[in-house]
Design a protein around this nucleic acid. Structure first.
Lengths: 335, 335
DNA sequence: ACGCTCAAGTCAATCGATTGACAAAAGGCG
DNA sequence: CGCCTTTTGTCAATCGATTGACTTGAGCGT
C-alpha cells in the first residue's frame, strides 16, 4: 500500500536533494544534463506525477480555468463550451465547469468554489439579472481580485470586465430588415425579455429598424424554448391569420414556431416567414432549413479564452462580433 | 495590495490560535460556541475563503470529480453531462471537465491531469479502442489507485471498474423486432462499428433477433453523424428501392436518414421505417417525429455519479438500464 | 599559489490548512 | 481537599513542491 511517489522519493532513490529533482523535472538550469537525465529516468520508473495542489500552494499559480454557464440544454451554450474547451486545452489549461441555470445564488456558489480551488481565471456567461454587486469580489482593482474574469456571450453594463459578445443591436436590425422586405401584414417578436443585455439589445435593434420604417409589431416576450415558440406562434396564427413574419430571439424558439406552422398547415418561406438567431448546428437540418442570423460562437469562445490566458493588458476591452445573415428557406423573398 | 486572508489572519484578529479557527470554521468540537461565533463573524468580515489546495494537501481529500467525455457535439453526451453535473452539484462536488474526442492519447493526458489535480474520482465514458492497459493506473488494487473511477454510457470488458450503461443487446433486439413487424422488403443497419461495447452489443442484439426470424439485413457501419445517415440512406434508397427499414445506431444518424427520405420524396412511417436510439431531446421535434429506443440517460448519469461519491463498496458492479421503445411516427405499423 | 568566476547542488523557509498530542482551567465527587 | 474528567484551547509537525541564499569544488588567468 505505497502512496504516490513524491519528489523526495525520487531524490532519495537517485541520491540528490529534492531541490535538484524539482529543478530537473521542470527543466531549469542548475543541474547538469547528466543528473537531470538520471532524475527524469527515475521519475518515469517510479511513475511520478506532480502534485499541483502542493505546487500551486507554493507558487500561487494554477492552470485551471473556471467556466460558468447557465444552461447546457440550450445547444448554443453547448457550442460555446465546445469552442472554449478547445481553446483552453490548446493552451494547456484545464476546465472547471459550473452550470448555474440562471440562478444568481448558484452563480455565487460557483464563484466561491472557484476561489476555493484557486483557479487562475474565469470565463463567464452571466446569469439573468447579474449586476455589478454579484461580481464585486472580481472587480476590486490593484491585485485584490482573486482572479481575472472574462465575460462571453452576454455582456454587462457598468462592469469593468473584458467582454466578448455578439453585436446584438445589429442582429435585431437585420431581423427587422429582412422581415420588412418579405412584406408581411404583421411582424411579431418572440422571446427575449429584459433579463440580459443580449435580449435587450437584440430587441432594441429590432424596434429601431422597425420604427425607422414606421412599421408596428406585436411583441411576445418569453423563455428561450421550443415550447414557447410553438405556443405563441400558434396563438398568433389563430388570431392574426397566416401572413406574419416571426422574429425569434433564438433558433430554439424558431424551431417551435416551425412546428406550429406545420401543425397549422402554414408554409414557412411562403405564407409566413421565420427568422432565428444563433445559427446552431441544428438550424441547417430543421424542416424546412431555418433562416437565421448567425452568431460567431467560435470567435467569441476563442477570443474570450485567449484573452484570459494571455493576460488582459490595460483597460478592459469590450468586443462584439458582427452577426451574419444565413439565408436558408424560412424567410419569404421580397415581393 | 493585501492578499487573501488566511486562517492565521483571522486568528490574529480574534486573538486565538489558527487551530481554533480551523476547528471552528469546520464546526468541530473543541471550541466553545461563543468563540466559534466570534471566529465566524471575523471570517465573514474579512471575507475569508478556504484554500482547498492547502487543505487538500494536508488531508489528501478533494471535492473535485473529473468527468471524461468524448464529444460534446453529439447531443447525447451533452445530455449525460447535464445529468452528471446535476447529481454532482447535489453532493457538493465540482466538475473538472475533459473532452477527449475518441483519442486515447488525449484521454491519457486527461487522466494524468486529473491525477495532478488530485481529483477524488472520475466519471468516464471511454474513448474508442480503450483497453485495460489504458486504465492501468486506475486498476491497481489495494489502495494503489490514485482515485476511484466509474464508467458510464460505454462499458469495457475485462476491466474491474463499476459500469453503468444501457442494455444495448436488448436495444438492438427491440429495433430488429419493430422493423420486422413493419414488414419491409429490406432491413438496413446504419452506424456503429467495432470500436465500443455499445456498438458491438447493439448490433449483436439486432443480428440475433433477425437471425431468429431468419431475415437478412444489409449492414453499413460508419460514424455517428447526420451526414453518414444522409449519405448512406440516400444510397440505399437509390439502389434498393423505397421499401426499407432503417435501424440507426443513434438518433443523430436517424436524423440524417430523415433528411434523405425527404430529399428522395419518400415518407418515413409509410414507405420506409426509421428507428433511432437514445431518444435525445431533438427526437420529439424532428420531421416527422422520430421513433426511437430510449436510453435512460438520467438514470445512468445519476447512478454513476452517486456510486462514485458514495464510495464503491465490495466488488465492482455492472448495471444496465433497460431501454424503452418510444413510438412516434417513423416506423410503419404492422401489416 | 592566489583570487575569482562559474557550474552544480544543497539548505531551509515557505505556501495555508489540518490534527494528534498535550496543557490549563473548570467542574464533579467522595 | 485531592483526584479525576471534561472542556477549551494551543503546539508543532505535516502534506509536497518551490526558490532565494548559500556552499563547494573545479577551472582559469596571471
Amino acid at each position: 500500500m505505497n502512496r504516490r511517489p513524491t519528489l523526495s522519493d525520487i531524490a532519495k532513490s537517485v541520491g540528490v536533494s529534492t531541490s535538484a529533482v524539482s529543478l530537473a523535472l521542470r527543466g531549469r538550469a542548475r543541474v547538469s544534463t547528466e543528473t537531470a537525465d538520471r532524475i527524469r529516468a527515475e521519475a518515469a520508473r517510479l511513475g511520478y506525477v506532480q502534485n499541483k495542489a502542493a505546487a500551486g500552494l507554493r507558487t500561487a499559480r494554477s492552470d485551471v480555468v473556471a467556466v460558468c454557464l447557465n444552461d447546457l440544454s440550450n445547444p448554443v451554450f453547448n457550442e460555446f463550451l465546445i469552442h472554449i474547451e478547445e481553446a483552453l486545452r490548446g493552451s494547456g489549461r484545464i476546465v472547471f465547469l459550473g452550470v448555474v441555470r440562471e440562478d444568481r445564488e448558484l452563480q455565487q456558489q460557483f464563484l466561491r468554489a472557484a476561489m476555493e480551488q484557486g483557479v487562475s481565471g474565469m470565463l463567464m456567461c452571466p446569469a439573468h439579472g447579474t449586476g455589478p454587486e454579484d461580481l464585486d469580489p472580481l472587480l476590486a482593482g490593484g491585485g485584490q481580485a482573486p482572479f481575472p474574469c472574462v465575460l462571453f456571450s452576454r455582456g454587462l453594463d457598468d462592469v469593468a470586465l473584458p467582454q466578448f459578445t455578439n453585436d446584438d443591436r445589429a442582429t435585431g436590425r437585420i431581423m427587422a430588415e429582412r422581415l420588412l422586405e418579405a412584406g408581411h401584414r404583421e411582424i411579431c417578436w418572440l422571446g427575449g425579455g429584459q433579463q440580459t443585455n443580449t435580449a435587450r439589445d437584440r430587441y432594441a435593434g429590432f424596434c429601431e429598424a422597425l420604427e425607422q420604417a414606421g412599421w408596428p409589431h406585436v411583441p411576445r416576450h418569453g423563455p428561450t424554448s421550443r415550447a414557447f415558440g410553438f405556443e405563441t406562434a400558434s396563438e398568433r396564427l389563430r388570431v392574426g391569420g397566416s401572413d406574419v413574419g416571426f422574429a425569434c430571439f433564438s433558433d430554439l424558439i424558431a424551431f417551435g414556431v416551425l412546428s406550429a406552422c406545420e401543425a397549422h398547415g402554414v408554409r414557412p418561406g411562403r405564407d409566413v416567414s421565420v427568422i432565428g438567431v444563433d445559427d446552431m448546428a441544428e438550424a441547417a437540418f430543421s424542416h424546412p432549413p431555418l433562416t437565421t442570423v448567425g452568431v460567431d460562437k467560435a470567435w467569441i469562445g476563442h477570443s474570450a479564452a485567449r484573452h484570459l490566458v494571455e493576460g488582459a493588458e490595460g483597460a478592459p476591452v469590450s468586443q462584439k462580433s458582427p452577426p451574419s445573415y444565413v439565408q436558408r428557406s424560412t424567410v419569404r423573398s421580397g415581393q
